[in-house]
C-alpha cells in the first residue's frame, strides 16, 4: 500500500482544519433548549469529565485515607486484643491451676480430713528420678513451716519425707530412693515389716518371714514405728510374692507417683514417741 503524497496529506489536514473551524464556529452560536450554546454544552460535558475525574480521585483519596485510618485502628485494636487474649490466657491458666489445686486440696482433705496441726500444702516443682537418688523439690521451705523430717503425702498416698529445707524450698526423699526405709504394715495381716526403695519406681517389703501370709494386691501402709511417718498412710500394694531364703520377696507398687502429684501435704515432723497423726484412723485388721 503506497503512502499518500504530501500534497494529499496536506489537503486532508486542511480539510480537517476547515471542518473543525466551521464546527467550532457553529458551536459557539447554536443554543440548546437550556439557553446555552453548543460550545458551552460541549465545554460543560468536557469539564464534567474532568470534574468527575477530580471527584473520583478525591473520593478515592478519601477512601484510601479512610482505609488507612481503619487499618491503623484495626492494627491497634488487634494489638490490644492480642494483649487482652494473652492476659486472658494467662488468667485462664492461673484459674485452671487454681482449680486443679483446689480439686487436689479437696482430694487431699478428703483423704486426710483432719491433718495434723502445722500441715502445709506445697507444690512439687522438681522430681528427680533419673539419677541414683530419687528426690523431689517443693516450693515451700522453713519460711512456710516446712521442716526436715516432715512426711510428704499426695492424693494417692505417701511420697516421702523432707530431708532438707531451705527458706523457700525443700528437698524430699522419695520412697523409691534406695536409701529410703519405712516401717510398714501389711494391712490385711497386720504384719510389720520394712519397705525400702528399689531405686526405680517402687519399693520392696523386707523381713517378712517365708511362712507369713502375703498375697499379691495386699495393701501396704506405714506402721508409725520408724518415728518418721505417721501410722496408716498408704504406701502401695504388693505386686508379686516370691521367696528369698528365709524371707519373702515382696516388691511393692507405690501408691503415689510424684510426677502425678502437683500438690502435696507436708505434715510436721513427728515428735519423739508420736506415731499417729491426729484424725488418721488406724488401719483395721480384717
Amino acid at each position: 500500500m503506497s503512502r499518500p503524497a504530501p500534497s494529499a496529506r496536506r489537503d486532508v489536514v486542511l480539510l480537517a482544519l476547515l471542518l473543525a473551524g466551521c464546527i467550532l464556529l457553529l458551536s459557539v452560536q447554536v443554543r440548546r433548549s437550556g439557553g446555552q450554546t453548543l460550545a458551552e454544552s460541549w465545554a460543560l460535558d468536557a469539564s464534567a469529565v474532568l470534574v468527575r475525574g477530580v471527584t473520583g480521585v478525591r473520593e478515592a483519596g478519601g477512601a484510601l485515607s479512610g482505609w488507612l485510618s481503619f487499618r491503623s485502628t484495626l492494627v491497634r485494636e488487634n494489638a490490644r486484643l492480642h494483649e487482652r487474649v494473652t492476659a486472658l490466657e494467662a488468667e485462664l491458666l492461673r484459674l485452671r491451676d487454681a482449680e486443679r489445686d483446689r480439686n487436689h486440696l479437696l482430694g487431699l482433705l478428703g483423704l486426710y480430713p483432719t491433718p495434723p496441726p502445722g500441715t502445709r500444702a506445697a507444690h512439687v516443682i522438681v522430681v528427680s528420678t533419673a539419677g541414683p537418688f530419687q528426690s523431689a523439690v517443693l516450693d515451700r521451705g522453713r519460711r512456710d513451716g516446712v521442716l526436715p523430717g516432715g512426711a510428704v503425702v499426695g492424693l494417692k498416698g505417701l511420697l516421702g519425707r523432707v530431708v532438707a529445707a531451705g527458706e523457700a524450698s525443700a528437698r524430699v526423699q522419695l520412697l523409691s530412693d534406695r536409701t529410703a526405709a519405712t516401717g510398714v504394715l501389711l494391712s490385711r495381716t497386720a504384719r510389720a515389716a520394712v519397705a525400702r526403695g528399689d531405686g526405680g519406681a517402687g519399693a520392696t517389703v523386707l523381713y517378712v518371714p517365708a511362712v507369713a501370709d502375703a498375697a499379691v494386691g495386699d495393701e501396704v501402709v506405714t506402721s508409725g514405728t520408724d518415728g518418721v511417718y505417721p501410722r496408716g498412710l498408704p504406701v502401695g500394694r504388693i505386686e508379686s510374692v516370691g521367696r528369698a531364703g528365709l524371707f519373702l520377696d515382696l516388691p511393692v507398687r507405690l501408691a503415689a507417683d510424684p510426677r502425678l502429684e502437683p500438690l502435696v501435704f507436708v505434715f510436721p515432723p513427728l515428735l519423739p514417741g508420736e506415731a499417729r497423726s491426729p484424725g488418721e484412723p488406724l488401719p483395721v485388721k480384717p
Binding site: 489537503d11 480539510l15 466551521c22 464546527i23 464556529l25 457553529l26 452560536q29 447554536v30
Partner: peptide
C-alpha cells in the same frame, strides 16, 4: 437566519474536497 454561521461553509468544504 442566524446563529448558524458556517453551516454552508462546512458543507461546501466537504463537497469541494
Amino acid at each position: 437566519p442566524g446563529r448558524l454561521f458556517g453551516l454552508h461553509a462546512f458543507a461546501k468544504v466537504l463537497v469541494a474536497f
